[in-house]
Design a protein around this nucleic acid. Structure first.
Lengths: 218, 218
DNA sequence: GACCTTTTGGGAGTTACTCTCATTTGACAG
DNA sequence: CTGTCAAATGAGAGTAACTCCCAAAAGGTC
């Protein structure tokens, strides 16, 4: 039920998720779906660049992508999702799980995040930059970023649960995930706000150093 | 311009903001406005309790409060704002500014937050609890909580700016405000999720201890 | 080519929100 | 008490993001 998000699972570790999905031996039906999804996204971003996010309607996007509005909502649950959903979560989860379980969680997060971002920059730097800038500039998107399903906090919390082998999160876990998640998000948004000119790995590293020090000196 | 939020300024330090505003010598016009605002809120919460947030329409709320929908939106910019706007920001800012400027920021935040909450619990415990529970349960509200104008992060950032005497926030400030803000929010939400049975001061204290330790042991 | 399942388009409906304009109501001076 | 001005309200039309439902089309399989 509730089949809103047709995000395909990644069967084997891909070098580039999106690319890998395109090359995989999919049925005609699935290739078409992927293509439609891409077209909608591409046309949407084109329109956003031309006339801004707010003043671009779903109807316009659907028309540009040559699908009906109904179909648009079958591919993206909300207009926000167009910008906010990514396919990086599985990779991030994998990266986190690959870290030694006795490593301080903060370190695991830092290394996983930097690793993931480094990888993304090679293939999708421009796209990531545009998306993050949209998020910083459009209040609605900034808010949407904190919805349960998109937030890094939720992802971190899931990992903490898994590490501890429990079902319900403890208070410590919730605070930890929230704080590290917020810092992670802010770091990436700062990078995008600066036009992507700064070294993002350095930014992330610095943010985590702040967290680790307990905000010493502030 | 943009006179969306008729939140009255607090002229002198009040013991209880809402009470103080009611007792203050206001003109008939302003007393009426305040009364309308209260009526809308009260009726809204009553309806939320009866039939839930999502399935309560603005039209219903307006009807229950005996105002037109137009008037509703003159008092609250969005339906979210009904739950998300509070009058505590000035008090929190004052509490933060009252702390010594050379105190570690984390300490200032902890003390200010605990102080404010202690005060609130005396007069508005029930209201706070209901509101926070709504926020935890309704995804739309949870997202709205992170809009620039409501978030503790924005408030903390403003204080950091003032302390440093600068206009533009530094990277460190942004990360710090985001992390501490997220932890503060999570602490209060955890308290509400637990039915308000735990000691909130202890919860906040514990959250800040986690932050200060750099998440040692996690 | 026949049959079944998935995907799509179209249309009607709901709701949050915006804008505009005419009416009402409180504030205040004479 | 009255006239005048500004602020607050109500009413109505309009927009856009969704939701639901049903019939048509297209892919997959034998």
């Amino acid at each position: 039920m509730n089949a809103t998000q047709p995000t395909a699972a990644l069967p084997d570790a891909p070098t580039n998720p999106v690319q890998a999905l395109l090359e995989a031996p999919l049925s005609l039906r699935e290739r078409k779906k992927l293509k439609t999804r891409q077209t909608i996204r591409r046309e949407a971003y084109r329109l956003f660049a031309e006339q801004g996010y707010e003043s671009t309607t779903v109807e316009q996007i659907a028309a540009a992508a040559e699908v009906s509005p109904s179909t648009f909502f079958r591919y993206f649950a909300t207009k926000d999702d167009l910008v906010l959903t990514d396919e990086y979560d599985p990779a991030m989860i994998a990266a986190l799980l690959a870290r030694p379980a006795d490593e301080p969680f903060l370190t695991s997060c830092r290394e996983a995040l930097i690793g993931l971002i480094r990888q993304l920059l090679q293939h999708e730097r421009q796209e990531l930059l545009i998306r993050m800038r949209l998020v910083t500039e459009v209040p609605a998107l900034r808010a949407g970023l904190h919805r349960a399903d998109h937030s890094p906090a939720a992802l971190y919390l899931a990992i903490l649960l898994r590490r501890a082998g429990v079902e319900e999160p403890s208070y410590d876990m919730r605070i930890t995930a929230a704080a590290i998640g917020a810092a992670s998000t802010e770091a990436v948004l700062c990078w995008a706000a600066g036009g992507g000119e700064q070294d993002i790995a350095e930014l992330v590293d610095h943010a985590f150093a702040l967290l680790e020090s307990g905000f010493a000196g502030v």
